[in-house]
Design a protein around this nucleic acid. Structure first.
Lengths: 242, 242
DNA sequence: GGACCAAATTGGTCAGACCAAATATAAAGC
DNA sequence: GCTTTATATTTGGTCTGACCAATTTGGTCC
């Protein structure tokens, strides 16, 4: 489920999940606002606000005369989080797709950041990599530094498109994975390879090298996370269907 | 400037643009719903629906006690389109960032599609490339085939994350560029190179080759679009500030 | 079977009201 | 004077009931 505790959000969450679960076929008529108000024992205003959210997600399209359900494939990026959380634990395939995508974008960011960095920024980046190296034996301790490095590179690369995409992806995936306590086992050698690649790239100010190192790292991360999910206790998710 | 013609959408569009124009600083209090209702001469319900949309965009955060403006950098991907359309014509830097991002994702899709394609799908892809080659002298005529090819590759690659991102990006950028009538002048040799690369990659079923060809093509496209925008008549945009 | 028209349905909006949480203001204490 | 506490006000969240316009729906007539 999502965040807030208002009625309209609860209605929106419930309906969103129902659509994501394919309870309605794409193109189907969506129940009328008045019917939904009765069903949720709420006012039509609250229902309307919920539908407004669903429309923003691209899950329904409303028109005078009635609303219709749209294809999940045509939805907004913001449905990824709810989609992944549908069954309580993430769909391994979806996680893999996320990591591949996030990896490509992060590699691009690293490349651009290294290429565009000013001398001072380059020093800052190197420092962050060094700090990362100091904690390369503790996965947990690495996380804050890792985030810091990504943030710094993102700032330097200064690509708003990627930043906005990453906002959505991170908000929906990374936090979710953390919450679920998925700890990928990454080979020490893989991390060393990444750090070395980043360092070399920064020293030569060659973004290609840094980007390639990042890309390779995500490749390994994909495998590691896949393993971690596979062996995870799949607690049966308790979810009211209403 | 957006789509629908309802009052709540108009309010949302106006307020969204004001936020994107930095009329409010991040962290500022947002006007109260009642004040906005007076200002727009609308009911509070309509204003609330508008604010609900802004919240979905990640531009404001509402709480009992008052709403606050959030940083554009923390917003949802869906603000890109409005952001680009703010001054009537697209910000060249933003367009370039879009093309770079879209290029990386499309290259990834091409690579995965070619690698994952079944024999029949491979034949279909080759056919689409051939059709594209048949019209390689007419930019306009290429567009539908180009879209068809991208759609086919997207279906085969079957990466929902990329698909959702592309939905948003395409909806916000491509259509906008088309509407503005921006016609990048792409060298014939560049197109031939792309088509050749795709063909070779498909024949060998080597996604790396196809992906690389796609990547190179977008590189050239970036330059061409940059030129096209630079020399475009910049009609002064007429926008009421309310 | 297809074109046309009336009735029911549905989304969009409005007005006025109440509650609970958050904020601002005034009062009390030091 | 300054902090703390209590009070009043503002603000978002919700409800009820109503009206309009656009769309669907269903029946009628050719």
């Amino acid at each position: 489920m999502s965040s807030t505790n208002t009625i309209s959000h609860e209605i929106a969450d419930t309906l969103r999940d129902e659509i994501l679960r394919q309870r309605y076929r794409s193109g189907d008529r969506f129940p009328s606002e008045r019917d939904l108000a009765v069903r949720f024992d709420a006012s039509r205003g609250a229902v309307r606000e919920a539908l407004s959210q669903l429309e923003q997600l691209g899950l329904i399209h409303t028109q005078p005369g009635g609303a219709r359900v749209q294809s999940v494939n045509a939805a907004s990026l913001a449905v990824l989080g709810p989609l992944m959380a549908l069954d309580g634990y993430p769909d391994p395939l979806l996680v893999d797709q996320f990591l591949q995508t996030f990896g490509v974008l992060t590699a691009m960011t690293a490349k651009n950041a290294v290429n565009a960095a000013s001398p001072e920024q380059l020093i800052q980046l190197k420092k962050l990599v060094l700090e990362l190296a100091d904690h390369s034996d503790d996965f947990e301790a690495m996380q804050p530094r890792w985030r810091e490095l990504l943030e710094a590179m993102s700032t330097i690369a200064d690509n708003l498109v990627v930043r906005l995409i990453s906002n959505d992806l991170k908000a929906q995936f990374v936090d979710q994975m953390m919450k679920l306590g998925i700890h990928p086992k990454i080979e020490r050698s893989s991390i060393d390879q990444l750090l070395t690649g980043l360092r070399v790239g920064m020293n030569k100010q060659d973004g290609e090298i840094a980007g390639q190192a990042m890309q390779n790292h995500f490749q390994e991360l994909r495998a590691a996370v896949g393993e971690a999910i596979k062996f995870r206790d799949k607690e049966p998710s308790i979810r009211a269907v209403n």
